[in-house]
């Protein structure tokens, strides 16, 4: 955008980088389709796999052809059990995410904004964060039993640390001058929170959310392997124990699709809700 655009209205209209509202419809389509490009390389892989399986180059007992898996997927779509598994896993994942992300967000913001809280919590978080959360799964199962709560909790714990650290980093990366602007104008603590700290930390928060869905899925599947009698993770484990690999691959595919769908949704929401994030001024 040229400085000259300002005093010459006719030029301004032509040259103007589009205001968010006007270009939305066109941009929305591109935003919708853009992420689908990532499908290209998996599709190529599947084609090679299919060919190799049909040619008998790979052991189909372990690596059934994608078409076989797809057929299995299709029949499973019409079973009640599949939807129960999917529904349960989704519910566990979403509740766990919520239970972990909200407190993590609040603590991260507080750590970024208030020195005493930072000093109190930073060492603790730093010490606990690298601990692989799967390692405490037995403890969680012991405390919360085999019911739903243990699944929520293991997902929530993993998500909590990630969210705390990413939000904290997000707040710390805000240029101090933005706080100066608010302070000079006499903004209250809450005003500063909502007009500077929260929006300024959004890039960090969204990064956190993206990683969190991945980690949440991982922890959930692990928990369902050992401590559940339903759910996608349980189904994968069960397929192994009865040595019937097709449903196992269906389970893996569902997990992959879930991971992809979450990443896609977050990306899409981000572009729609926070258009400035894609092009932050430095």
């Amino acid at each position: 955008m040229k400085e000259t655009a300002v005093r010459n209205p006719s030029v301004a209209v032509d040259l103007a980088a589009r205001p968010a509202s006007e270009a939305r419809s066109k941009a929305t389509l591109r935003q919708l389709l853009g992420p689908l490009q990532v499908l290209i390389s998996p599709l190529v892989l599947l084609l090679v796999w299919e060919g190799a399986a049909r040619a008998g180059w790979i052991e189909t007992k372990f690596f059934p052809a994608p078409s076989t898996i797809l057929a299995q997927f299709w029949t499973m779509l019409f079973t009640h059990g599949f939807w129960v598994d999917l529904g349960l896993s989704l519910q566990r994942l979403l509740i766990g995410l919520l239970m972990g992300a909200v407190p993590g967000l609040l603590l991260g913001l507080a750590m970024g904004l208030f020195r005493p809280i930072r000093i109190a919590f930073q060492p603790l978080i730093a010490a606990l964060y690298p601990l692989p959360k799967i390692a405490i799964l037995p403890l969680i199962l012991l405390i919360f039993g085999l019911g739903e709560m243990s699944k929520y909790v293991i997902v929530a714990i993993g998500v909590f640390f990630l969210m705390t650290l990413n939000t904290f980093a997000g707040v710390m990366s805000i240029r101090p001058i933005y706080f100066d602007v608010a302070k000079n104008l006499g903004a209250s603590r809450w005003q500063t929170y909502f007009t500077v700290a929260l929006p300024g930390a959004l890039p960090g928060i969204l990064t956190g959310l993206r990683i969190c869905t991945g980690l949440g899925l991982l922890l959930l599947v692990a928990a369902e392997f050992v401590g559940a009698d339903a759910g996608i993770g349980y189904r994968i484990w069960w397929s192994w124990s009865v040595f019937w690999v097709e449903p196992m691959y269906v389970g893996l595919a569902v997990i992959a699709i879930l991971g992809f769908a979450f990443a896609y949704l977050i990306d899409f929401a981000e572009r729609l809700l926070f258009p400035w994030l894609r092009n932050p001024s430095r």
């Binding site: 001058i177 100066d180 602007v181 104008l185 006499g186 903004a187 005003q191 929006p199 932050p280 001024s281």
Partner: peptide, 28 residues
């Protein structure tokens, strides 16, 4: 308000539109 400062460095909020930035001082 007692004072309003215009900074040497860039200080408009990237997360607000021009109109929101402009009204920010009066609102806050």
């Amino acid at each position: 308000p007692l004072s309003a400062m215009i900074f040497q460095e860039e200080s408009v909020f990237p997360w607000m539109t021009v109109a929101q930035n402009a009204a920010y001082g009066v609102k806050i």
